[in-house]
Design a protein around this nucleic acid. Sequence first.
DNA 1: TTTTGTGAACTAGTTCACAGCT
DNA 2: AGCTGTGAACTAGTTCACAAAA
Lengths: 228, 228
Amino acid sequence: MKVSNKGSSKAAPVKQSADQVSELTTNRLSVYLRCLNALENAGVRTISSQALAQQFHLNAAQIRKDLAYFGEFGVRGVGYYVRDLKRHLRQILGLDQKLRVAIMGAGNLGLALADYPGFRMEGFEIAALFDNLREKVGQQSRLGVPIYDIHDLKKIAKREGVRIAVLAVPATSAQHVFNLVVAAGIKAVLNFSPGTMQAPPDVKLKSVDLTVSLESLSFFLAQGDGES
Amino acid sequence: MKVSNKGSSKAAPVKQSADQVSELTTNRLSVYLRCLNALENAGVRTISSQALAQQFHLNAAQIRKDLAYFGEFGVRGVGYYVRDLKRHLRQILGLDQKLRVAIMGAGNLGLALADYPGFRMEGFEIAALFDNLREKVGQQSRLGVPIYDIHDLKKIAKREGVRIAVLAVPATSAQHVFNLVVAAGIKAVLNFSPGTMQAPPDVKLKSVDLTVSLESLSFFLAQGDGES
DNA sequence: TTTTGTGAACTAGTTCACAGCT
DNA sequence: AGCTGTGAACTAGTTCACAAAA
């Protein structure tokens, strides 16, 4: 341990970061957690950064650096205790408490995301869908997520304790809906709508741009065809 | 122009890359193209890197560097001709020819992606869905994309000229389906299934990991709550 | 004058390599 | 012996700043 334990807290094992961590690092923490889950299911009790790296095609030094950012979780000569490290990662990622999610837009994509199994693991809970079409409001997704009127977002987000919004609305209304989300006090948004978005500094906006992803693949094909 | 035009080709205006371009750059090319489309629709004929940067919150020098990788498209003292640059970008990204796409997995997500409007713009064409469930095969998506048996992938991919596959299958079968895609001669894959995947070097694999994205947001919230 | 295209400077991210702990 | 945690070295990516072109 290097940081002097200033003040009262008795033996806090986690640095709790402070200076902001790179997004690349936080993404990897999530990957590590998934690897640890797989290892635990396979009955592995302890793992070295080396072994973890080999098994999942990562870099050992990077794993150690990423983890060291938040504390000293390893044991020299041994490695990491799978169960312990898993617990620490879940705590660092804020997955030790259930996080409630709202999905904006009950179109094809919104409905698919609402029932997406990957979201239901690891402590997320899809609490609500929102749309502005009369015929959709009052319905629910196949797995039972209710569809509310987007005008009630503020009220219902408060009532349901929604912390994260997922944007699955057409590009044309993306900024407008985003603004509504921000006005409802939600501070973290996963955006699937294409295009630029203007976000206030205290709101975390993460965008998945399907068009950009596909066009990037198209570029690869276009380059590859002309060579070798 | 700096690269000596070695050999026969008469005045090729595009460097056609060769040494591989960073994925960050290719992603941005796609973004630039979208900006140019918006500008053209707004009737703008010419734009400087400066103006483009301001309007879409980008960096002017970076725009110029990214473009300079592929040729000299600008006019000093003027900027870029919107129509020209658009054409060049479409050509660089390989969007001047229709690219046919197959979607693996006709579940909620696969069906949603098959009908996703963003994919249908800019030259992509969703040619087929594939699944292994009897009751799905022979059906089609709302917009009419036919669902085939995954066993016929090779045959149909060939027949339809599929160049890109989108993986929307459960995590447990992702690697298996990916292998089938590779065996069918498809060289570019957009993967929505979580987890690590083993890909041969000549196949471009791009992954969108929704769990990682959400957990990254969770991290942000967990950090933010403890401070200020 | 305006704006590009680009070397140089800078910043961020990754990997190496090893002291030090178990 | 084995493995972590981490400074140092390296690599990649971004931004600056300016000469050259229109």
